[in-house]
Simulated assay, not measured.
Amino acid sequence: MEDIGTLPAEDGTPIAFRRIAGRGPGIVFLGGFKSDMTGSKAEALSDWAAAKGQAFCRFDYAGHGQSGGRFEDGTIGRWAADAQMVLDQLTTGPQLLVGSSMGGWIAALLARAAPERVHAMLGIAPAPDFTETLMWPQFTPEIRATILRDGVWHRPSDYGEPYAITRALIEDGRQQQVMTNPLPFRFPVRILQGMRDTDVPWRHALRFAEAIDGDDVRVNLVKDGDHRLSRPQDIALLIAEVSRLIEE
């Protein structure tokens, strides 16, 4: 049976979560930028965990999905704090952190802060440091000037309405980078990455793997895969990787 509720963040913002009780190591799903906990990958993992009796927890960052707050007020540091609260208050023991896109960055921040709480990490098109290494370099001088002058620029999206890129997001992202120094991860790390991903280039996944100072790191490149990696065959690959990491 799924436990559905909210946790109050430090500023009182309600953070929505869904949790399934079960055996450990538990799984924590960390969603992407402007996504929510009811996406196809999270739902598939939830169904798998329920069937296997595995503990599973997912949530929405502030300004995302069913949580309170405004998306425009969010930063990587703020969303990482939401994730840390969920990890601390809703899970026990080592967890398998499954991070999708931005969730891969959040997972790396959690793992760097509390490696003893990490059983393993699985990144799905992980996008650590994306604001500084993928986003800011691609912006035209006009877009950069708009962000610096107005504090926000609304970026068109292939997935719905334009979304806000704020100056706070960019500046905080610089402070939250994880690939500027070696990451001492002594647990298994797996990366699933589509080679037709137009949001996070596949070479970014290789740079992330290189930044990890640990030997148990594997990158699985899906040549015809896009950023979402949510086709039936992609979901099957995700479930297979999760199953292997749990058994390890």
Score class of each variant (00 low, 15 high):
Val28Met: 14
Ala127Met: 09
Phe130Pro: 08
Gln193Phe: 06
Pro126Asn: 01
Leu192Glu: 04
Ala107Asn: 11
Asp215Gly: 12
Gly99Ile: 05
Ile147Pro: 09
Leu237Lys: 09
Gly53Phe: 04
Arg155Thr: 04
Ala168Ser: 13
Ile212Gln: 07
Arg112Thr: 12
Thr92Gly: 15
Pro188Asp: 05
Pro94Ala: 14
Ala120Arg: 01
Asp172Val: 07
Arg190Lys: 11
Gln84Asp: 15
Pro8Trp: 00
Ala16Asp: 08
Ala168Thr: 11
Ala211Asn: 08
Arg18Glu: 14
Ser100Leu: 03
Ser230Pro: 04
Asp224Asn: 14
Arg218Met: 11
Asp73His: 13
Pro94Leu: 07
Ala120Ser: 09
Ser46Ala: 15
Pro156Leu: 06
Ser157Glu: 05
Arg228Phe: 07
Val178Leu: 10
Ala42Met: 02
Ile147Tyr: 07
Gly63Pro: 07
Trp202Lys: 02
Gln177Phe: 00
Asp11Met: 06
Thr6Asp: 14
Gly173Phe: 04
Ala107Phe: 00
Arg23Asp: 14
Ala42Ile: 03
Phe130Ser: 10
Glu10Ser: 11
Ala209Asp: 01
Leu206Ile: 07
Ile15Pro: 04
Thr131Asp: 12
Arg228Lys: 12
Ala111Glu: 02
Arg149Ser: 14
Leu192Cys: 09
Ala49Asn: 05
Val118Ser: 06
Gln54Phe: 03
Gln177Tyr: 00
Leu97Ser: 05
Asp213Ala: 15
Ala55Ser: 13
Thr140Ser: 15
Asp213Arg: 12
Arg174Pro: 07
Glu241Tyr: 08
Glu72Ala: 15
Ala209Cys: 05
Leu96Asp: 03
Glu72His: 11
Asn181Arg: 15
Arg19Asn: 06
Val28Ala: 08
Ser243Ile: 06
Asp224Val: 04
Leu30Asn: 02
Gly26Thr: 02
Glu116Ala: 13
Ala49Thr: 03
Arg244Leu: 12
Ala9Phe: 00
Ile15Arg: 03
Thr133Leu: 14
Arg186Ala: 15
Thr140Lys: 10
Leu87Asn: 00
Val118Gly: 08
Gly194Pro: 09
Arg78Val: 05
Glu116Met: 03
Val86Asn: 00
Glu171Thr: 09
Lys34Asn: 07
Ser35Ile: 01
Ile170Gly: 01
Trp105Phe: 13
Glu116Asn: 12
Arg207Ser: 11
Ser35Phe: 07
Val152Trp: 03
Ser35Arg: 02
His227Asn: 10
His227Cys: 05
Gly69Met: 01
Pro25Lys: 09
Asp216Met: 09
Leu109Ile: 14
Leu30Pro: 06
Pro141Arg: 14
Pro25Ala: 13
Ile170Ser: 03
Glu171Leu: 10
Arg23Gly: 15
Ala62Arg: 14
Met135Gln: 13
Glu2Thr: 15
Asp197Ser: 06
Ile239Ser: 04
Pro184Ile: 01
Gln175Pro: 07
Gly74Leu: 02
Trp79Asn: 11
Gly151Lys: 05
Phe56Pro: 05
Pro126Thr: 12
Asp36Tyr: 12
Leu97Glu: 04
Leu237Pro: 12
